[in-house]
Design a protein around this nucleic acid. Structure first.
Lengths: 199, 199
DNA sequence: GTCTATAAAACGATAGAC
DNA sequence: GTCTATCGTTTTATAGAC
């Protein structure tokens, strides 16, 4: 980090990544184009290729960025110090936020449908990202059941996979049927995981 | 039905619809083309336009066909006469079948990610299809809880939405992480809905 | 009635201007 | 180092041949 990159270069690169991510989550990988990004940026489509030579690399960069974000968030003292139910709620908040904005789907939900058409690099990175998220949630669930703050049957990993699957799907539902439906599903999910308080 | 359509016309039309449905569920709406269908059929891409003038109409026809299939299946004596848990299992079998073949995702899972890029007609028909399926399952769940053969908390409609969301998502998971993960999720779902048998 | 030749536009990407 | 002119391909769709 002896020399900083030229401000404009950095900004353009970052802006491209940001716009591409928005477009990916809104339209899916096969329905967004360099033209969409270029128009927004006020440059020609080919300019994007300087920063991201191929769409494959652009797509991979988006997944890598979300991977970094996940790790950073997960390891935040603000998050690690929470109780398991609070960690679960923190995760749900991420999805609630997306549901309220667009609604956007999550990265997994945006890419899974087109999975077979994705470049191999992107397929592999999505597997890693999703696997790591599931692993983290499984840990949270296991800790919660151990201390009695969460309840569920079966293996924590199975339950984590089920919860994340439901969350990914629920954002797709929000898009099709509206945000209200999304909240129905989330309330259902949350109610089942939190132990029934004896009156 | 006084005169049957010419055999060749009917066959080609049906074959197109069948191929298009396969391609849609495998690749998503924006990643399959008239060329894919034409190559398989041994005709030029433009020939498809005679049978389905636009991709929008072809897509709508696929949804309508699944809608017809759902209604037919749902109203089959073989299905209506089942107990609620058996009806649930019959539904799960549909998803198990898809998971074992490809894996294919379900219609909702294939279209929800690209939803914002779909023609308005297709958006509306997907809403209707999905809504009707949810309504049916809500009825099954309500009946099951009433006679004690199924257990869950919350409103039957919320639970139905949650279950179908999980099912749609689980087929996407199967595609990314393999069929084993899919079965974990389904086992989890089933276990929670079936009352725990007291030993 | 069924299909092909062909067009018009959008796609991702290379080569080269500045 | 950054972007534009341009290419070759693929896309959906029309017009017209048989």
């Amino acid at each position: 980090m002896s020399t900083a990159a030229p401000a404009t270069a950095f900004d353009t690169r970052t802006r491209i990544l940001h716009l591409a991510e928005e477009l990916l989550l809104a339209r899916g990988f096969n329905a967004f184009s360099y033209q969409h990004i270029a128009k927004e940026l006020g440059v020609k489509p080919a300019a994007i290729h300087y920063h991201y030579p191929s769409k494959e690399e652009l797509g991979a960069a988006i997944i890598q960025r979300q991977q970094r974000r996940l790790r950073k968030w997960r390891d935040l003292p603000r998050v690690t110090e929470l109780t398991p139910p609070q960690q679960l709620d923190a995760l749900l908040d991420v999805y609630r936020h997306r549901a309220a904005h667009g609604p956007q789907v999550c990265l997994f939900g945006a890419l899974a449908a087109d999975f077979l058409t994705l470049p191999a690099v992107m397929q592999q990175e999505l597997r890693t990202f999703s696997g790591e998220l599931t692993h983290w949630l499984a840990g949270v669930l296991a800790a919660g059941r151990a201390d009695g703050s969460l309840q569920f049957s079966g293996h924590p990993f199975s339950k984590a996979a089920q919860v994340l699957t439901t969350l990914a799907g629920s954002l797709q539902v929000a898009r099709v049927h509206g945000e209200e439906q999304f909240h129905y599903i989330l309330r259902q999910l949350r109610t089942e995981l939190l132990p029934t308080r004896e009156a």
